[in-house]
């Protein structure tokens, strides 16, 4: 076969690289053998191409927000057309079952209300335990901001379940305001204005 290869020339008379010719011949032989013996090799090129594109796309989109919002049965986030980004701040969550500061449960919510025993007085909107913990957290944040030379924004992000009654929201907001929170943001899933009616409306 070697002699044959050395003397090979293409139809139009050009000399062909013996290495290429040898490779082609080997592939042809291999294909014949595989056909006869019923053995075949899996071509993974397309799959690797696809995986590379997918991994690149996912890595590009991989980002971590300063506050993580995880929905569950007790916490369904509202949708809003606001396009403001989430900022690093103190996270106060109001779920169907409790009021939480960061990941710590502060007071329970029973039958859509905060038990009056957890309030300063029956008529008051202030939740003393939340106020105390929030003050501690804000002082800690102020200290860090001072050390890092950043402005002390005293910002709180409220992650509120969509069915939360307005009364609870105001109780928590009033407590936050009393504890020293100066700026309030509500977390919401972004949606575009003009995208039509959503399910449930």
């Amino acid at each position: 076969m070697a002699e044959n290869i050395e003397n090979l020339a293409s139809d139009n008379g050009d000399f062909l690289d013996p290495y290429v010719v040898k490779k082609k011949e080997r592939r042809r032989q291999k294909a014949i053998t595989e056909r006869i013996e019923g053995e075949f090799e899996l071509n993974l090129n397309a799959m690797i191409d696809m995986m590379t594109v997918l991994v690149t796309f996912l890595i590009k989109n991989f980002q971590s927000d300063p506050i993580s919002v995880e929905e569950n049965n007790d916490l369904r986030i509202v949708h809003s057309t606001s396009d403001l980004a989430i900022k690093d701040s103190v996270a106060i969550s109001i779920t169907k079952k409790s009021v939480m500061l960061q990941d710590e449960q502060i007071v329970p919510i029973v039958e859509g209300a905060i038990d009056p025993s957890n309030l300063q007085s029956a008529e008051s909107s202030i939740i003393p335990l939340l106020q105390q913990k929030l003050q501690e957290r804000l002082e800690q944040n102020s200290m860090w901001a001072k050390q890092l030379g950043r402005p002390d924004e005293r910002l709180a992000t409220f992650i509120v379940d969509k069915d939360t009654p307005y009364k609870i929201l105001i109780q928590v907001m009033t407590t936050a305001s009393t504890a020293g929170v100066q700026n309030v943001k509500f977390a919401a899933m972004k949606r575009a204005q003009g995208s039509g009616i959503r399910k449930g409306q």
Binding site: L58, S82, S177, V184, K190
Partner: peptide
């Protein structure tokens, strides 16, 4: 690549969370 892909897909956030500025009447 398979391992990385599964990790990235499981941690991918498909809906983006934003914020809404409000002012409390007290502040």
């Amino acid at each position: 690549m398979t391992t990385i892909m599964f990790f990235l897909i499981s941690s991918a956030v498909l809906s983006e969370v934003g914020t809404l500025d409000v002012t409390s009447a007290k502040a």
